[in-house]
């Protein structure tokens, strides 16, 4: 819509016919220049991370952060994965990676399942106090986590799950519930209600309808939920650092400990390799899911 046209100006030039002659206009050029600069801004940090992770420390000290490595080495990657140090522990970022995986799998499955169940009950069944429950749930999605944290720590300590795998998984379920419920509630509410009514008439009970009819129909929204939860939980730092305990620190926490540790010489190449490794899982999800990711964002943008 921004393009303008230029016309043959000479009098009695060709009789206009067929497509308008177009010349490259300033607006169009400006558009692509803007897009190119924007793309540069978003790509540059990733480029810098990648080239840095392939350089030797000697080359990094020269200070040409944007230059390509003169002799690329994957040594920093191996070191980052296998032997990067947090304080005195030198097990590499792989420790955090496997911790994150172990946290991720139960958290994603359970939070989606509970969210689906709650969304189903709230959207298709008449439950007294449903609106109130949902309102408070929504509120929970918006309030700063700092409000909940200390009492949760106390509760966890009392029941003995503070600093354990159970503790961190429960935390992800708790704070994933609002978004998951919202997602499934809106999804089930958008399905034709006749379907549900027919199942009721056929004598289906609450759980029968859920497991036999609703869950099998939920594939699209489960994909969206998976994208949101996998990236969200993988990227979590706050809950990991507080609730997971020393043995289960997720990858983000371990990464920060490695990079921002004050001991020893800073190995920027190893740090960048570790950083990219940490970003890898959500990036793979992002590139594979494509438009679904955007759909997830739109759904997560909390529209009523």
């Amino acid at each position: 819509m921004l393009q303008a046209t230029s016309r043959a100006t000479a009098a009695n030039a060709v009789e206009p016919s067929g497509p308008r002659p177009r010349s490259v206009t300033a607006g169009r050029v400006g558009l692509y220049v803007f897009l190119a600069f924007a793309a540069l801004f978003f790509l540059l940090p990733m480029y810098v991370m990648i080239v840095t992770s392939l350089k030797t420390m000697g080359e990094i000290r020269i200070g040409n952060i944007f230059s390509l490595p003169t002799e690329a080495t994957i040594e920093p990657w191996i070191q980052a994965w296998n032997s990067a140090c947090t304080g005195l522990n030198c097990g590499g970022i792989k420790v955090g990676f496997w911790n994150s995986v172990r946290i991720l799998i139960p958290s994603v499955i359970l939070s989606i399942f509970i969210g689906a169940l709650t969304g189903y009950a709230l959207s298709l069944w008449r439950v007294r106090g449903a609106n109130l429950l949902f309102a408070v749930l929504l509120l929970g999605a918006f309030l700063p986590y700092q409000v909940f944290i200390y009492p949760l720590v106390r509760i966890y300590s009392t029941i003995g799950i503070y600093g354990t795998m159970t503790g961190i998984v429960v935390t992800h379920i708790i704070f994933g519930l609002p978004l998951m419920t919202l997602l499934f509630r809106n999804y089930y509410a958008s399905l034709p209600i006749e379907l549900f009514k027919a199942a009721r008439v056929d004598g289906g009970g609450f759980f029968q309808i859920f497991f036999r009819l609703m869950l099998p129909m939920s594939t699209p929204i489960v994909i969206v939920a998976c994208i949101l939860q996998v990236t969200g939980i993988w990227n979590d730092f706050l809950f990991g650092v507080i609730f997971a305990g020393r043995e289960n620190l997720p990858m983000t926490v371990q990464l920060n400990n490695i990079v921002n540790s004050t001991q020893g010489e800073k190995l920027y190449n190893v740090n960048m390799a570790a950083t990219i490794l940490t970003a890898l899982v959500p990036l793979v999800v992002y590139f594979i899911s494509g438009r679904w990711f955007v759909r997830g964002i739109a759904a997560g943008a909390v529209k009523g």
Binding site: E15, P16, G18, P19
Partner: peptide
């Protein structure tokens, strides 16, 4: 929209390339 070929005249004027 742009025509691929041909002309459009309105009121005796060739407007094929007009806005």
């Amino acid at each position: 929209l742009d025509v691929s070929a041909g002309q459009i005249w309105i009121g005796g004027k060739n407007v094929t390339w007009e806005e």
